[in-house]
């Protein structure tokens, strides 16, 4: 495993991970996120990446797969909406040449209908591609689309089937979920009880602080592992997702009403008073 990693690793990539990597973790390749996850996702886990539109779910999911390829772990991106052509184009803006990875049989973008993904005959839609490229990672963009094809009561059972299909094949999956509920006062990830089916939940959320829109990332759940519980700010840069420091001076971010913590307010008042004194 280590040998193939060094063989396939891009120049400079190994520098991001000096020393011995944490055994048995599936690294996202985003250093700060891996630190938050105490080394990466647990192997074979189903991870839900939830957030409202424009929060960076697709970018983060693609970055996870691209970094996987660099670590010698082939990946598959399943999309129900966008055509592969558009995914290639968007990825290229971040410097990720998905077509080249496909030519090397290390990556596949699969575009299909959710109803076909749910077909449960002897042949599954993904059987051939799983056999061809032997992926270690797979992204479904998005699980929310399945809702259009199944009754709300059946959604949990169908999602469970998709998750089990991937788990039994040893694939670590990231399932995207469009979650408008993460903004505002009432906080829930899904309204169909999927949070219990997945092993890990990473939530992305836009937050308004002092009249500017910023983005926050938080790990809400991680079965069988400790993780960073803080809300971290992140940006979408020309190289992908970049995670910044925690929102330590604010509270109420998840509920949608961020305000400065009392100690910070006191410090501001104190600074203001001492400045006034100096001027006087």
């Amino acid at each position: 495993m280590t040998a193939s990693r060094s063989k396939t690793g891009a120049s400079g990539f190994d520098q991001l991970f000096p020393g011995k990597p944490e055994e048995g973790r599936v690294k996202t390749g985003i250093v700060e996120l891996d630190e938050m996850l105490k080394g990466g996702f647990m192997p074979g886990d189903a991870v839900m990446l939830a957030g409202s539109a424009g929060t960076g779910k697709t970018t983060l999911a693609l970055q996870y797969l691209v970094n996987g390829v660099k670590l010698g772990e082939p990946g598959i991106y399943v999309t129900f909406e966008e055509l592969p052509d558009q995914i290639y184009r968007d990825a290229k803006n971040f410097g990720w040449d998905l077509r080249k990875m496909e030519e090397q049989d290390k990556f596949r973008v699969i575009c299909t209908s959710p109803s076909l993904m749910l077909e449960s005959g002897s042949d599954s839609l993904l059987d051939d591609v799983l056999r061809d490229i032997q992926p270690r990672r797979l992204v479904v963009d998005s699980l929310s689309h399945l809702e259009m094809f199944v009754k709300k009561d059946d959604m949990r059972m169908e999602a469970y089937r998709v998750i089990r299909y991937l788990k039994t094949r040893g694939v670590s999956s990231v399932l995207l979920w469009e979650s408008p509920q993460i903004s505002g006062g009432s906080f829930s990830v899904t309204d169909v009880g999927l949070s219990f089916l997945v092993d890990c939940i990473v939530a992305l959320k836009p937050v308004e602080i002092e009249s500017s829109m910023r983005k926050a990332l938080v790990i809400l759940k991680m079965r069988g592992s400790d993780h960073d519980k803080r809300l971290r700010e992140f940006e979408i840069t020309s190289n992908g997702i970049k995670i910044e420091s925690a929102f330590t001076n604010y509270e109420g971010i998840i509920s949608g009403s961020p305000r400065k913590v009392a100690s910070e307010k006191f410090m501001e008042m104190f600074r203001g008073a001492s400045e006034k004194q100096k001027k006087a």
């Binding site: 592969p84 496909e102 596949r108 973008v109 699969i110 575009c111 299909t112 076909l116 839609l125």
Partner: peptide, 11 residues
């Protein structure tokens, strides 16, 4: 242009 497209003719 979209080599990973797997769908019915309708799709």
């Amino acid at each position: 242009r979209n080599p990973g497209l797997i769908d019915t003719v309708d799709g």
